[in-house]
Design a protein around this nucleic acid. Structure first.
Lengths: 262, 262
DNA sequence: TAAATAGTGTCTCTGAGACATTATATT
DNA sequence: AATATAATGTCTCAGAGACACTATTTA
């Protein structure tokens, strides 16, 4: 332990800056949407080494005049091809293991985005192969001792870990915030919102309690004019709602499996 | 939008690396402890510009062979002078606003630490002035339009924002995890644990419900042999407990003010 | 003996699980 | 008519707020 430990509150010029070689800082994004009732994430197929042929989260370098949030918004627009993005973006956590990129030191500030029903990322995006993957096809609960991964894509770098962390963030965030409304259109029915929770959690909430809690929560949803589309198998058309102004859910929604956690 | 957007999943060598000048990466720490019943944070007085004379969170550069967590543990030991640290450390979030340091681009990966009753940071630490500050003396709810800050220290850089975020993290984390036991000694009484919640939240939980919930929560605390010290004003000596193996609280503790939040 | 503190008893109300019923639509 | 879906009714139980009470220790 030196007597003059370099610290961020002392200026780098005062110390041996060469001792602290430059680090590349990137943002990586786990962009979630619900397609055909299935929670999906956008992945990009790598052309180059390392990890050529592997799938990876979209991301990019942070520009000199950007903070991480700005860079993440820029990447989000570039990768999805969507001009005005109606969803939600937030920082997840930073991954800094020295060998996470085999050649350079790259620190990645990971972000999570939720959006309603984004289009296929073909037109508008850059040339690399990109597509939506169902979460359950990427993060299978496969036996880690088994070599048979049955067509499941191997993710580049530490992106599987990032994606697992991002998924847990989304799953817990819709418990105690109103972010589930970021996965549906501006006007939506309660059964549609119910299917959001089902898709994100991978399990069905109790239907009776769900409706009761959504309507009891202060300003979570407000009734809109008209009814939603008819269901294929029959039944009445559901009431339309739109998102209210609340951002926090009090009391929180409950994951059915949560009593068993930890 | 370029057709070849540099991304973290394509190697920096393939692109104009000079376009992405080196960035310094640091860790900053909000180290909380409870001293004399008051939630306190460790701050360091700056000698040099910028922000000479201001107080700042301890921190330092991340070494080439370290990840952020390792660097944070190292700084924690250096700054507190404590050999074996019995508390908890976790990543908070990363602050990357380009002008947060006026001269260099410095991205800071902020961390939060909780520990029981740490010593004054005089001996063992380095030469800079360091001391514990009561949270309420640093983050006063002062009128932001007023220039009179009444002796309250102005924090360097964006450290006031980091500290506010860290405080909210600690306050919410003791709701749904067992981390409150990181603020007391190995053996403790329920009144001592109650005073932890009071100090961290800045308000008193309902005493009857507190005891009921702590004892009802599976494996949050387990009874130990003997009784705690006598209270100054009289009264029976309280039963001793130690931390159980649970890490998550189900159901969560409730902040009294939480019904009003948002 | 007065005062402070530790710990328990218990009533009430809210909210969540569970089960059931009614209403409205499609095929 | 049969079937699927939307929405509501209501019983029960767990947990949280509130108030009261007993027991133990110091000054």
């Amino acid at each position: 332990m030196s007597t003059q430990t370099p610290t961020s509150d002392q200026h780098p010029d005062n110390y041996d800056a060469a001792k602290y070689p430059s680090v590349f800082v990137t943002v990586d994004l786990a962009i979630f949407t619900i397609r055909h009732g299935v929670l999906s994430v956008l992945l990009i197929e790598r052309d180059d080494e390392p990890y050529a042929g592997h799938w990876a989260l979209p991301g990019g370098f942070i520009e000199p005049d950007e903070d991480a949030g700005t860079a993440a918004w820029r990447e989000l627009h570039e990768e999805t091809g969507v001009e005005q993005f109606s969803g939600h973006l937030e920082q997840l956590r930073t991954y800094s293991e020295p060998k996470r990129d085999p050649r350079h030191r790259i620190v990645s500030i990971a972000h999570v985005a939720f959006a309603p029903n984004l289009p296929e990322p073909t037109a508008g995006s850059d040339a690399r192969s990109a597509r939506w993957w169902a979460i359950e096809d990427v993060l299978t609960d496969r036996d880690p001792t088994s070599e048979d991964n049955g067509g499941v894509p191997a993710l580049a770098f530490d992106h599987e870990q990032i994606l697992r962390d991002a998924l847990e963030r989304v799953r817990s965030k819709i418990e105690y915030t109103t972010l589930a409304t970021q996965f549906v259109d501006e006007e939506f029915t309660l059964p549609e919102l119910y299917r959001v929770y089902t898709a994100v959690w991978g399990e069905e909430p109790h239907k009776r309690n769900f409706v009761r809690k959504v309507l009891a929560a202060e300003d979570f949803v407000v009734k809109a004019a008209g009814k939603g589309d008819a269901s294929p198998g029959g039944g009445p058309r559901a009431q339309l709602y739109k998102a209210g102004t609340a951002t926090v859910l009090q009391p929180a929604m409950m994951r059915p499996s949560l009593g068993k956690r930890d």
